[in-house]
């Protein structure tokens, strides 16, 4: 959604005011909000942040329904509804079970990123380590494309292809 004031930036602040029974919605970007003197709570408690992220997704309800909101993890019995309330998951398996519903939230919390590219436990299989290395390159490639640095992007793409070939051999 576009900001109603500057009509350029993405609207990230959504206000609903009710005056004399008349409902008025305002959608603005952060800069315009500051200009207009609209203040936002700066430090949101984590569970509030999470539930606001979950509920701010436009296709949220359909998505939850599609991915099975009633679905419970066979390992820990957790449901998405429970996660919404408590802001923590029940077990590592939940990341697989609820991956569809969690993905948009994970991306929002981590600046659009969705692949690990840091440390790998030394006991993890070698293929895992290689996969994480490829993820790191993939992430760099995405950045390069975003910055329109196509020379770098091409180089990174070749590197990824090389690694993939090695892996498949």
């Amino acid at each position: 959604m576009q900001c109603q004031i500057c009509k350029k930036e993405q609207a990230t602040i959504h206000l609903t005011e009710i005056n004399d029974g008349v409902r008025n919605e305002v959608h603005v970007c952060e800069n315009c909000a500051v200009d207009q003197g609209i203040t936002v709570k700066s430090q949101m408690p984590i569970n509030e942040l999470l539930s606001s992220l979950l509920s701010s997704q436009p296709s949220d309800d359909e998505m939850l329904a599609a991915s099975g909101q009633e679905l419970a993890c066979p390992d820990c019995g957790f449901t998405l509804d429970k996660f919404r309330k408590e802001a923590v998951l029940g077990c590592p398996n939940d990341y697989e079970i609820f991956s569809k519903a969690l993905m948009p939230l994970i991306k929002k919390a981590h600046e659009g990123k969705s692949l690990h590219c840091g440390k790998v436990p030394s006991r993890a299989p070698k293929t895992v380590k290689k996969q994480v290395e490829i993820s790191a390159l993939q992430q760099q490639l995405n950045e390069a494309v975003k910055k329109e640095d196509y020379e770098k992007a091409a180089m990174l793409r070749d590197k990824i292809n090389q690694k993939n070939e090695k892996n498949s051999k």
């Binding site: 984590i46 999470l50 802001a87 923590v88 998951l89 590592p92 990341y95 697989e96 969690l102 939230l105 994970i106 919390a109 981590h110 990123k113 969705s114 692949l115 690990h116 590219c117 840091g118 440390k119 790998v120 436990p121 006991r123 993890a124 895992v128 996969q131 994480v132 993820s135």
Partner: peptide, 20 residues
């Protein structure tokens, strides 16, 4: 053995801490 996955790295109770 730590809980770890290739996609999300070190798995934590809250999704805001996953990865590293």
């Amino acid at each position: 053995d730590y809980a770890f996955g290739t996609t999300f790295g070190y798995l934590t109770a809250c999704p805001t801490n996953i990865g590293t």
